[in-house]
Design a binder for these strands. Structure first.
Ligand code: ZN
Ligand code: ZN
Ligand code: ZN
Ligand code: ZN
Lengths: 190, 190
DNA sequence: GAAAACAGGTTAGATGATAACATCAAAGAA
DNA sequence: TTCTTTGATGTTATCATCTAACCTGTTTTC
């Protein structure tokens, strides 16, 4: 884990730019997702928790200790977490933990836009950029399990155009791309 | 169901064209999906079964009576079917039907590309255009439950470009767009 | 025909998610 | 403050989805 703690914000454009004519810069949190060995994950966690505090305060939602703890557990890695794994983790630190405990916390976090559900995996990941009107677009590495969240307006636009032609009104997008991340490709994962 | 059985193929272009400058024609099976009252669904079913026979023959797969029957049940509508509904339907017509019966049949049909799994619904739909290298892109009406399959190269291309920038190798796309179909919008569904 | 591969039956259980009701704490109203 | 309402969590039970493991019979292949 390399830290570089000083600068107030890691500059995405500095780190990114693998080659192509990137029309818009790759967000920092995406990069961190796919460089698990090379980043200080504690920063991801604390950033996520701060943002959660902020957005909940702003929207009048109550980020209770339990909910906050579940969010923290979700953020233990960039790999999607199963509800029952969360349940097990909770069970280790408090006596009372039943399925509804964790599912209710997850419902809250989903509602608040702090986590996303990965439908194709029945699992949950923390959202790196919580905010309104942001739909989940995910790259999922089948080798290391890491999930990176995209935010490609072009993608949504293409979908909107397609839907438009059929008179279809888009409400929710579920986009989950499975494959191999750069790291796993390099080390010849299958 | 209104029939109009005579013409050898329903003309997509005739029915479609809601307004826009459709860059490529909307495939017939997509249109049929979203006009449930206006098409002879028996044609969908028999077409699907013929194609299934053909592709299985071509690829040396065995479309056994059970598998064929499950496919037929999946095709009872353009609405995704739950595995346990299939199981119940099977149970009504034969004595022996347990979960593995239907899940194994579904696995086969998925493998053969004859049905798709809708991850966001834990359900299955028949594939209108079975064939290799074709990834699922779905529009799902939350009001009437109808699912239409898209095949938008532009969409895949956009995803590929995005993935490229991150060095990500795409293997499988899960694209499920929930919303309202034209019909349900007209009749003011929510 | 024997061996191998495959389809399906059968039993049991793992995993994922929710319903319904009880209890307690926080937020608002009187 | 005290009452009231709302919301968060505990608790129990159950439903829903999916799979492992083992067995039997049927095709394929040699
Ligand atoms: Zn991290
Ligand atoms: Zn990876
Ligand atoms: Zn039809
Ligand atoms: Zn509809």
């Amino acid at each position: 884990m390399i830290t570089s703690k000083k600068t107030s914000r890691p500059r995405a454009s500095k780190l990114a730019r693998p080659s192509g004519p990137a029309r818009h810069p790759v967000p920092a949190h995406v990069l961190r997702s796919f460089t698990p060995a090379r980043h200080d994950h504690r920063r991801c966690v604390s950033a996520a928790l701060s943002k959660a505090d902020a957005t909940c305060n702003a929207s009048g939602r109550r980020l209770t200790p339990l909910r906050r703890r579940v969010l923290e557990l979700v953020w233990r890695s960039h790999t999607p977490v199963k509800a029952y794994d969360l349940l097990a983790a909770l069970g280790r630190e408090r006596e009372q933990a039943a399925p509804p405990t964790v599912y209710r916390a997850l419902d809250f976090l989903l509602e608040a836009g702090l986590v996303h559900r990965i439908a194709s995996l029945n699992a949950f990941v923390g959202c790196g950029e919580p905010g309104p009107g942001h739909t989940g677009q995910f790259l999922i590495c089948t080798a290391c399990g890491t999930v990176a969240e995209l935010d490609e307006p072009a993608l949504s636009k293409t979908i909107a155009a397609s839907a438009e032609r059929l008179g279809f009104e888009v409400r929710r997008e579920t986009i989950e791309i499975a494959g191999l991340c750069a790291g796993c490709r390099r080390r010849g994962a299958d």
